[in-house]
Design a protein around this nucleic acid. Structure first.
Lengths: 243, 243
DNA sequence: TCAAGTACACTTGTATACAAGTATTTTATA
DNA sequence: TATAAAATACTTGTATACAAGTGTACTTGA
């Protein structure tokens, strides 16, 4: 009823999306941001009313979020799991696992085209910084890594990424928004890291690859700390509706 | 309308399952077995009619199968992808990836309880062989590996397994059924492999682990060859309905 | 005050209805 | 016969309705 007009997920990314996709994305953001607290119980009917849609798209959303492990479907109601610190560590375990795998494939491939593509994306990222567009920057950041993963044409590695991506996207969005406000100087470092990533792929130097991989994850670790800050901000500013 | 009474998926495994689960499991089996050919276009309405249910559970099934990468949801109709040889290789890439990861965690854990559990499952497998129950054997085989994976309590590794499991289960079911008929002697070797697996975990000997891991996958490779045989049998014996 | 049973509110899963959009086929026209 | 236009038979996504089941709360009885 008294639904907030503010959406956490960028509405422009949903122009062609279905109601189901909209609910999925927005709900995910609210859970990951902490706006919907861990342990909360979500009702299909209530969510449908809140989002102004029927139960069908809400059901779809809950199924997807359950497969992403951020809610748990029980007999009565969906229980919000949220992201504990343990889970962050686990997400990055998996990212390291698959990106390492991808790297091993890449060194045996022609990477010219990929390097071009990545350079283009890096250019986009620089522009996003210049014009203070945190959402666009996040989009390009996610796209950067997805482009690398897609390049080896491995459907099951891609499947893992597809499951991880939405959560990663939400994390990065929230982190980048807060950084644009508070730690603007970080972005030159992030750009340098990504350039190192590209160089590693270009030279096919495994040592640089490992180095850039770890720097990237150190950086990501920073993102996560920012996220905690963002969560604090949000949970103070948002009134929880319990009835 | 002229729906076959024969279900590929064991009906007793679906006793408490919803119509959606039933459709999902059976459809998966029909695709992986080759009974529904790669490239075929599935219609929600038609499937609903065939299975005698409404579109709701069918939609649910298609979403799940799409996330498992065995169909592709397009604007009009779901296109069956099926499993090419490349995809088999990719599945086992991922299995090796995650099982290796799990092993690394296991060597730092107390594995007594796990070893007990695995021994029990192995006992079940032996009984299944004795009584020629291919489905039960498959169930225990899948459970064996799932038990190992669950033991490290890693939600995102488990997420990967959850996505892989249904396809693995189908593959193993089909392969084991044909083996019980044609290559019964294989099973002593499979049992030995699993015993080696347990020993590796018990002694925490990384070398044995690697050895048993590879023997297991060699074995699995055999399973896949059997599957091709099974597909041949099926595609000859089944009349495709096209109208 | 406490226990048991009943009624109610709310849950999921499924069926069905409908709107909007997209291929296909048919029909009309040159 | 070839081409354009219109009718049709699909498709998906969403809304709504309903049945069966589950938990809660209230009432009734001691």
């Amino acid at each position: 009823m008294a639904e907030s007009k503010e959406f956490l997920y960028p509405v422009k990314w949903l122009s062609k999306a279905s109601a189901g996709d909209r609910v999925t994305s927005e709900l995910r953001m609210r859970i990951i941001s902490g706006m919907i607290e861990s342990g909360a119980i979500l009702s299909e009917n209530k969510l449908a009313a809140d989002f102004g849609v029927s139960r069908s798209p809400v059901r779809e959303a809950l199924k997807i979020l359950a497969s992403e492990n951020i809610i748990r479907l029980e007999r009565m109601g969906a229980v919000v799991i949220g992201l504990t610190e343990k889970k962050y560590a686990e997400i990055y375990d998996v990212r390291i696992l698959i990106e390492t795998f991808v790297f091993e494939r890449l060194v045996r491939m022609n990477t010219n085209e990929l390097v071009m593509e990545l350079s283009k994306i890096l250019g986009m990222m620089k522009v996003s910084i210049k014009y203070l567009d945190a959402d666009e920057f996040s989009y390009q950041d996610v796209l950067f890594h997805e482009t690398i993963i897609r390049s080896i044409d491995h459907s099951y590695i891609l499947m893992i990424w597809d499951n991880l991506k939405p959560v990663m996207e939400s994390l990065i969005l929230l982190s980048m928004r807060s950084r644009f406000k508070e730690k603007y100087e970080d972005f030159t470092r992030i750009i340098n890291n990504h350039q190192l990533y590209i160089d590693a792929i270009k030279t096919k130097d495994r040592d640089i690859m490992i180095k850039s991989l770890h720097e990237n994850f150190d950086d990501v670790q920073g993102k996560v700390e920012d996220l905690w800050m963002a969560q604090q901000m949000l949970s103070k500013g948002v009134e929880q509706e319990n009835d």
